Computed example of a mutant assay.
Amino acid sequence: MPVDLILGTNNVGPHGKIKTIKDFSEILDLYASYGNKYLDCAYIYPAGFPGEAETFLGELQAAKDGKFVVDTKLDSFRDGAHTEQAIYVSITSQLARLKVDKIRTLYLHAPDRTVSFEATHRVINELYQQGKFERFGMSNYRLEEIIEFAERAEKNGWVAPSAYEGLYNIVSRKPETELLPVLRKYNISFYAYSPLASGFFSNIKRGQDPAPGGQFDPNTFNGGYNQSWFFKDELFTAIEELELVGAQYGIPNNAIALRWLRHHSQLSDGDAILVGYSKIEQLKQNLEYLEQGSLPDKIVQVIDSIWESIKDSAPESVF
């Protein structure tokens, strides 16, 4: 059974790529037409303009009558974000924007190490007991920190993490070695974000300046992280090799990346792929790629060979 798909909303809002309610409504309709219903949001989306994506979801009443299932992430990327007061302020405003009383998954988007994890976990458990969410999620935490939360939950009878969002794609396979075995041990689903490496597989060429305002513009929140993760000579070489073998079969890099993740990676039942887009045509193409089957053996062999050559410098999403 193929892994689930989850539609990302990090480009949604007046200051994102999907700037109007009308355009976003059409995207949701397209996504639903492929039999999908899960949506991923966050306080910070779109980057630099918190709340805009959640507002769009609320205006469209996306979660009404169960048509879509919404996950979101707390305000996290600043010191003090995970104090009790800050968490309550964040979740109260987020639920109000989404126009719901509860969501499926509430995430800690990134660690706030200025606050004890036990104190943060206690507040998350309170919110769970109050019925604000169904599942507790984490993202961008270190391996030992995930274990700490899981074991504290077992010890105290608190809500345990049951979903983890992490970077996973053809050139970012480090989760396979240590992270995934731990997630399996603690019954935590893995949701893979950036399956296309934010456009690195198709829109970026060696020596080419990134487009202003794009996913690799170093002056933007996302661009700085993406450059630090992917702008390495060995990764550019890997993508060039992938393009060569794909050309032999008429399969572009993005199709290779998505089909590998759904059919050949270590994702399994209960896991999911987060699908991104900057326009509706791109989403339609990606959804079509994801409907396609497994890859030719030769391409899979090249992917494995590439990984052996780059794994020491491959990116990973730990903050």
Score class of each variant (00 low, 15 high):
Lys284Arg: 13
Gln285Gly: 06
Val159Phe: 05
His82Asp: 02
Phe221Lys: 12
Ala53Pro: 01
His121Cys: 09
Tyr249Trp: 11
Glu165Phe: 06
Ser76Gly: 05
Ser76Gln: 01
Tyr141Val: 08
Asp297Lys: 15
Gly66Pro: 01
Tyr43Leu: 08
Leu179Lys: 00
Ala257Tyr: 01
Val70Met: 02
Leu235Lys: 02
Arg104Trp: 11
Thr83Asp: 05
Asp29Gly: 13
Pro212Lys: 09
Leu30Tyr: 08
Phe117Lys: 14
Tyr141Cys: 07
Ser76Asn: 02
Val12Gln: 00
Ile147Ala: 13
Ser317Thr: 13
Pro212Cys: 04
Phe49Asn: 14
Leu57Ile: 06
Gln130Leu: 14
Tyr45Met: 03
Ala153Asn: 10
Glu126Leu: 15
Arg184Gly: 04
Gly207His: 03
Arg122Ile: 15
Phe117Trp: 14
Pro175Glu: 01
Asn254His: 13
Tyr31Gly: 04
Lys67Thr: 10
Phe56Gln: 04
Leu98Met: 08
Ile204Leu: 10
Phe319Gln: 15
Asp4His: 06
Ser228Ile: 12
Gly8Val: 02
Phe190Met: 07
Lys132Thr: 11
Tyr107Trp: 10
Val245Arg: 01
Leu28Gly: 01
Gly166Ile: 03
His109Gly: 06
Glu26Thr: 14
Ala272Ile: 02
Thr9Gln: 00
Ala160Leu: 12
Glu291Arg: 09
Val123His: 08
Leu95Glu: 02
Glu84Val: 10
Glu54Val: 03
Tyr191Pro: 07
Ile18Met: 06
Gly51Ile: 00
Ala42Arg: 01
Leu28Arg: 05
Leu108Val: 12
Asp209Cys: 12
Glu288Ala: 12
Glu148Gln: 15
Leu183Met: 06
Ser194Asp: 14
Ser317Ala: 15
Val245Trp: 04
Lys99Ser: 10
Asp65Ile: 03
Thr220Pro: 03
Tyr168Asp: 02
Phe230Val: 03
Thr92Leu: 11
Val275His: 01
Ala197Lys: 04
Arg113Thr: 15
Thr220Ala: 02
Thr72Ile: 07
Arg259His: 06
Pro252Ala: 10
Asn169Ser: 08
Phe230Arg: 04
Phe117Asp: 14
Gly293Asp: 02
Leu244Lys: 15
Asp79Met: 11
Gln292Arg: 11
Tyr141Ala: 08
Ile256Gly: 00
Asp271Cys: 03
Thr92Tyr: 12
Ser162Trp: 09
Gly35Met: 07
Lys279Trp: 11
Phe133Val: 04
